[in-house]
């Protein structure tokens, strides 16, 4: 049983359908939620947090439906939208003084600890914070009200590489106690390679894969060759390939690897980014 279980959630819009989305989030895991823009990531996250009315499906937190325990669920989950900027003209101090009153489990010491750790100045206005600082502030709030699961929508988008790396380290530190879990959506695939344990891949509103990163990567291989005389019929076995200026490269399913001879092709593990590009563009 996962800490958070998403079971067959569906939501139909005029031009888009979230179609029986299911996956689990286990304790102590970082789950990367990937897919193209418009694939359904944000809709799924909003559905999990009951910000949209789902047509079907259920969401279980610690085995119980969130719809029956919504307030408990919301007090134990931290939701952060990457670009969200609430009350931009308020100071951190003023916004926190209001926010914390809603959480019975608020721990002021923990909050102060994170402010210090993240170098957040309480006198600063929200609009004066950089993208990375906003995420850190959101994390400080979530962790101080005892959130066990952090749901983060594009937390690293718009964040510079150094701050992004810093945030990913923070994520890894958080889950290392085995009690916290993180679900974060992103299209910055390199972030996942650095820190995700599990991957949930959504395409056109449907879950293409929900497994560990290792298992996901194991299913694919990268092949390349600069040699002449490649059997063109092999191109059909590629999920996606490029054959340009005498250089061939493609992503294939692992089970097709034996079709590509070692004499002609160089083979290696495909990166997450290569797999994602192949799955999207190979269509």
């Amino acid at each position: 049983m996962g800490l958070l279980e998403i079971r067959n959630i569906c939501k139909s819009y005029k031009s888009f359908k979230l179609d029986h989305v299911s996956f689990n989030i286990e304790k102590g895991r970082i789950v990367g939620f990937i897919g193209r823009n418009g694939a359904g990531k944000t809709t799924t996250l909003k559905g999990i947090y009951n910000l949209i009315h789902l047509d079907e499906g259920e969401i279980l937190y610690e085995g119980k439906s969130i719809f029956d325990n919504e307030l408990k669920f919301k007090s134990e989950i931290g939701l952060l939208f990457g670009e969200a900027e609430y009350y931009p003209n308020s100071t951190i101090k003023s916004l926190t003084s209001v926010t914390k009153t809603f959480y019975p489990n608020w721990e002021e010491d923990t909050y102060q600890k994170y402010l210090k750790l993240f170098n957040l100045d309480e006198k600063k206005k929200i609009k004066e914070l950089s993208s990375g600082m906003k995420v850190k502030y959101g994390l400080s709030i979530a962790l101080s009200h005892g959130a066990k699961v952090l749901i983060l929508d594009e937390p690293t988008s718009g964040v510079d590489p150094v701050s992004r790396d810093e945030l990913l380290d923070i994520f890894m530190d958080l889950v290392s106690d085995g009690e916290h879990s993180i679900l974060f959506s992103t299209h910055v695939i390199s972030d996942l390679e650095k820190c995700a344990d599990d991957i949930v891949y959504i395409q056109n509103g449907r879950i293409l894969s929900a497994t560990t990163v290792t298992n996901f990567e194991k299913g694919y291989a990268h092949v390349s060759s600069t040699k002449e005389g490649i059997d063109k019929s092999l191109f059909g076995k590629c999920i996606y390939y490029k054959d340009r200026l005498g250089k061939f490269e493609g992503v294939i399913k692992k089970e097709d690897e034996k079709l590509f001879s070692d004499e002609i092709f160089e083979k290696r593990k495909a990166t997450l980014e290569e797999i994602m590009v192949a799955l999207e563009r190979g269509e």
């Binding site: 307030l71 900027e85 609430y86 009350y87 959480y103």
Partner: peptide, 14 residues
């Protein structure tokens, strides 16, 4: 402008 609705709905309130 202050995204008050989104902020409020994230809080554990009805």
């Amino acid at each position: 402008a202050n995204r008050d609705i989104e902020y409020s709905l994230i809080l554990p309130i009805k």
